[in-house]
Amino acid sequence: MEVQNLTKHFPILGGILQRTVGYVYAVNGVNFSINKGETCGLVGESGSGKTTVGKLIVKLLEPTKGKIFFEKNDVTNLKGSDLKLYRRSVQMVFQDPYASLNPRMTVKDMLVEVMRSHKIYEGSEYEYAIKLLERVGMSEEHLYRYPHELSGGQRQRVVIARALCLDPKFIVLDEPTASLDVSVQAQILDLLKELQEKYNYSYLLITHNLAVVKYISKKIIVMYRGIVVEKAETNDLFKEPQHPYTISLLSAIPVPDPTLVRKKIILKGEPPDPIEPIKACPFQDRCPYVMAICKEKSPPEIDLGKGHIVKCWLKA
């Protein structure tokens, strides 16, 4: 999976004629690639465009600009039956498992429906549904349950099972654990890890929880206002964060040691309004090390070796 210069601007309609009066600059020229069987974390604060990236990749949204490649094929403009075929390879798990399950369908209906619509496992849908549930740590008894009869963790397992039933190669996980409590979070993450080891899935893990990313992913992409400010191997990023935003983000992780005196970097100001067009460096208003050039030109991508890339004038 590779994306090049991925951009999404949502038009804002206004006035009685519903004309475009502006844009929400959700994603602005994002580049990255994820290898097979790899987990890549996508982190950033709320409104930084993480989820939009995920939705663009699974083609729930059309990109304004840029290209998406999957297994070397350009999938940016897929339509109709090609798109349906693409859906079998690339799936997404949404943040809120309760909302992403139809409240009026049983687990079995949901799973069988998907298999039927793709004409896979014909004749043995039922057996495969059981197998899928077992694969995500549930059992046959849950087959006839409605979403409201399941616990939060079980719902998320059902969502995962449903994504797996098309046998995808790439799964976008949009905050898969955000709405679960901590012990269940760990179970779900372990399940995802285990599934990856067994079936060699690739994950794009979208989250704001750095502990989750550290636990599961090999690479990390840090986004700020729709721009990738830093990407690196997880260990490198946690050891030597380069971008001022990443540094402040990492300094906010709580450490379970009350005696440790830490320097917490608290950013001034509010997250920027995504309605304003991007000027030069998007982080300039909140950056503690802002320089004159940051307000004039957009920072270049600087390669620090080992795939560690940072977009900041400080490193130029």
Partner: peptide, 26 residues
């Protein structure tokens, strides 16, 4: 706009099915 409809689209279900099997009962 609800996630379960996005999820249904994502799973490659037809518009007809999403309209009458998923949204209508709700």
């Amino acid at each position: 706009e609800k996630p379960y409809v996005s999820a249904a689209k994502l799973l490659g279900l037809s518009n007809f099915r999403i309209m009458f099997r998923h949204i209508l009962p709700n």
